[in-house]
Write a protein that binds this DNA or RNA. Structure first.
Length: 543
DNA sequence: GTTGCGTTGGCTTG
DNA sequence: CAAGCCAACGCAAC
C-alpha cells in the first residue's frame, strides 16, 4: 500500500500555521516529488473534559480550541490554493508521525524548532527516530526573532534577566532583518496516503462539543488570512504605529482595543514575527519620529523574545520549586479564594469584569491581566501564582508557555520585578480609565443600572440605590471576598518577611523554611487580631 | 559599598 | 496634569 516512491517529504505543522515566511515549509517543498503537510490532533489536548471548570478539554478552553481549528481550516484552504492540502491525523503525536514516515517512505522531515519543554522532549525522540531511519531533518528557528540559544551563549551560558540586557545582547537583529522565505506559488502534490487514516479538519461539533451555549463569542477568528488582514489594518495606520506606547493604552477599551490584538496569531504562528517586525520597520522608515523599545510595537516583539529566551534557559521555569530565578514565597492554597477569582465572583467589579472578558473572549488587555494577576497573588489574595497561571493558560487564546509563565513570575514579584509595594488597586486602577464603568457594565450586566458613583464599589451603595439598580449586594452580586485595604497591607507584610528570608538564606529556601514562615505569619496575624480585640475591650471599658 | 536603574502604582499636593 | 512622596525591592555597574 505504500507509495514506494522514496521521494516523499513531510511538513509537520505544530505552531507556525502559515504559508508566508515559513522556512520549514519552503525546505520541505524543495526537490521532492511528493509533499505531505501534516497536522496531528492529540486527543489529550482536544478531547472534551466534562470535569474541567470551563467548556473545553483538560488543557484548553473552548475558545482556544476553536481558534486552532479555524487556523487549521484556513491553512488547509491556503494549501489547496497551492495544489496541496492539510492531512489531519489523530493520536499520540510521535506514534502517528513514525507510522506516517514509514508508510509514506519519507526521506525528509521538516518542522519548526520549538523551545517549549513539551516539544523539546518530543523532538529529541523524533530526531533520534529519524536519524536511525536515515531521514533528513530540517528544524529551523522561525517562531521568534532570535534564537534563544544564541542569546544565552552570548551571555556566557545564562539567559539575561533584564529587558535592557537582553536588548543589548540581541543587538542588531540580523535574522529578523534577513529576507523572508520565498513566496511559495505552488507545492508538490500529496502522494498516496496508504493505510494512514486521514481526516478533514474537524469542526467543534465533530470533536464532541455539540451543545455548548455561549451568549458572547470570542471576537477572534483563527487563521493566517485573518492574521494578515489584521496586520494590514494595524500598520496602515502609520501615525498610530509610530506613536504606540504600551503603558499608555486603555485596558478598559473593548469596542476598539488599545493594542494590535495580534498576540493569538503570533502564538500559533499564523503570523510570522519576522514579517511583522519588518512591516513595523517599514513604517518607522517612513515617519519623522517613532517610539522605541520597551514601549513601542517593536519593543513588544522584543519582550516576546526576552521571555522565550529566559524560559528556554531556566530549568523549572514554570514552577516556584527548583526555579533558580524564582523567589520562594509562602503562598497560600486557599481554593475558595482561587475559585472566587477564577469564576469572576470576587465582589470587585473591575476584577470580575476582567475575568469575565477572559472567559468570554479569551483575551484581555495587558494591563487588565496585570491588575487581576496582582490581585490574586501579592496584592490581595496571596494565592500561588502557579494557580493563576493555570487558569490563564487554559482560557487565553494567546496563552504562550514562556510569556504566560514569565508574566506571572513578574506580577507576583517572584522574579524580574520586585517592588511589591506597588499594588494595583482593584477599585481605582480601572476607574482611572473608565470612570463611567462602561467596561464593567458590558461584561457584568447585573451592574448595568448601578450609578457610576458606586460601580467600582457597589457594596458602599445605600440599600435604596441597590434596590433601584435591581442589584442587591450579597444576593445578586457578591460582597468583596476580602477588604482590599487590610488584605493588601497584610500581603505587603508577608512579602517583606518572605523577601528577608530569601535574602538571609541566599535564595536557598527549603519547603521546611517556608512552612516555618507560614506558621510565623499566622501567629503574627493572630497577634494583630488579639491586639484589635484588646483595644476594643479597653475602649468598651473606658466607655 | 555605593549608586542608578528598573515596561506601565496609589495618593496627595501644587 | 505633573511632581513628589510612600517605603524601599534586587540587581548590575562601578
Amino acid at each position: 500500500m505504500a507509495s514506494g516512491s522514496g521521494s516523499g517529504s513531510l511538513m509537520w505543522f505544530r505552531k507556525g500555521l502559515r504559508i508566508h515566511d515559513n522556512p520549514a515549509l519552503e525546505r520541505a517543498a524543495q526537490s521532492t516529488k511528493f509533499l505531505y503537510p501534516v497536522f496531528i490532533i492529540d486527543p489529550h489536548y482536544m478531547e472534551p473534559d466534562p470535569n474541567a471548570f470551563s467548556p473545553g478539554s483538560t488543557r484548553a478552553g473552548l475558545n482556544r480550541i476553536r481558534f486552532l481549528l479555524q487556523s487549521l481550516a484556513d491553512l488547509d484552504l491556503n494549501l489547496r490554493k497551492l495544489g496541496s492540502r492539510l492531512l489531519v491525523l489523530k493520536g499520540e503525536p510521535s506514534q502517528v508521525l513514525f507510522r506516517c514516515l514509514k508508510e509514506w517512505d519519507v526521506k525528509k522531515l521538516c518542522f519548526e524548532y520549538d523551545t517549549e519543554p513539551y516539544y523539546q522532549a518530543l523532538d529529541i525522540k523524533v530526531k533520534d527516530h529519524a536519524s536511525i531511519a536515515g531521514i533528513e531533518v530540517f528544524s529551523p528557528v522561525s517562531h521568534t526573532l532570535f534564537n534563544p540559544a544564541d542569546i544565552i551563549q552570548k551571555n556566557g551560558g545564562r539567559p539575561p534577566l533584564s529587558y535592557q540586557s537582553f536588548v543589548k545582547l540581541a543587538g542588531q537583529p540580523s535574522w529578523a532583518s534577513s529576507p523572508l522565505s520565498v513566496t511559495i506559488s505552488s507545492l508538490p502534490p500529496v502522494g498516496d496516503v496508504g493505510g494512514c487514516e486521514i481526516s478533514e479538519v474537524p469542526t467543534i461539533k465533530e470533536l464532541g462539543y455539540g451543545d455548548i451555549e455561549q451568549d458572547e463569542f470570542s471576537p477572534f477568528r483563527g487563521g493566517e488570512s485573518e492574521a494578515l488582514k489584521r496586520l494590514k489594518e494595524s500598520i496602515d495606520n502609520k501615525e498610530w504605529v509610530a506613536a504606540f506606547e504600551k503603558p499608555k493604552g486603555d485596558p478598559s477599551a473593548f469596542l476598539k482595543p488599545a493594542t494590535t490584538t495580534l498576540s493569538p496569531y503570533l502564538k500559533f504562528g499564523c503570523l510570522s514575527s519576522r514579517y511583522f517586525y519588518q512591516c513595523l520597520q517599514d513604517v518607522y522608515r517612513n515617519v519623522k519620529r517613532h517610539t522605541s523599545p520597551p514601549v513601542s510595537l517593536v519593543g513588544q516583539l522584543l519582550w516576546r523574545d526576552f521571555f522565550y529566551t529566559v524560559a528556554f534557559g531556566t530549568p523549572n521555569f514554570d514552577q516556584m520549586t527548583g526555579n533558580r530565578i524564582c523567589k520562594q514565597i509562602p503562598w497560600n492554597d486557599n481554593n475558595e479564594l482561587l475559585v472566587a477569582w477564577r469564576d469572576a465572583k470576587t465582589g470587585y467589579p473591575w476584577i470580575d469584569a476582567v475575568m469575565t472578558q477572559l472567559h468570554k473572549w479569551g483575551w484581555m488587555h495587558h494591563l487588565a491581566r496585570h491588575s487581576v494577576a496582582c490581585f490574586l497573588t501579592r496584592g490581595d489574595l496571596f494565592v500561588h501564582w502557579e494557580k493563576g497561571r493555570d487558569v490563564f493558560e487554559r482560557l487565553l487564546i494567546d496563552s504562550d508557555w514562556a510569556i504566560n509563565n514569565g508574566n506571572w513570575l513578574w506580577l507576583s514579584c517572584s522574579s524580574f520585578f520586585y517592588q511589591y509595594n506597588r499594588i494595583y488597586s482593584p477599585i481605582s486602577f480601572g476607574k482611572k480609565y473608565d470612570p463611567n464603568g462602561d467596561y464593567i457594565k458590558h461584561f457584568l450586566p447585573i451592574l448595568k443600572d448601578m450609578p457610576k458613583e458606586y460601580i467600582y464599589e457597589p457594596w458602599t451603595a445605600p440599600l435604596s440605590v441597590q434596590t433601584k439598580a435591581k442589584c442587591i449586594i450579597g444576593k445578586d452580586y457578591p460582597k468583596p471576598v476580602v477588604p482590599h485595604d487590610s488584605a493588601s497591607k497584610e500581603s505587603r507584610r508577608k512579602m517583606a518577611e518572605a523577601y528577608s528570608l530569601n535574602q538571609k538564606l541566599n535564595g536557598k529556601v527549603s519547603e521546611e523554611d517556608l512552612k516555618k514562615l507560614r506558621r510565623k505569619l499566622e501567629e503574627d496575624s493572630e497577634d494583630t487580631k488579639q491586639e484589635v480585640k484588646t483595644k476594643r475591650m479597653r475602649q468598651k471599658l473606658i466607655c
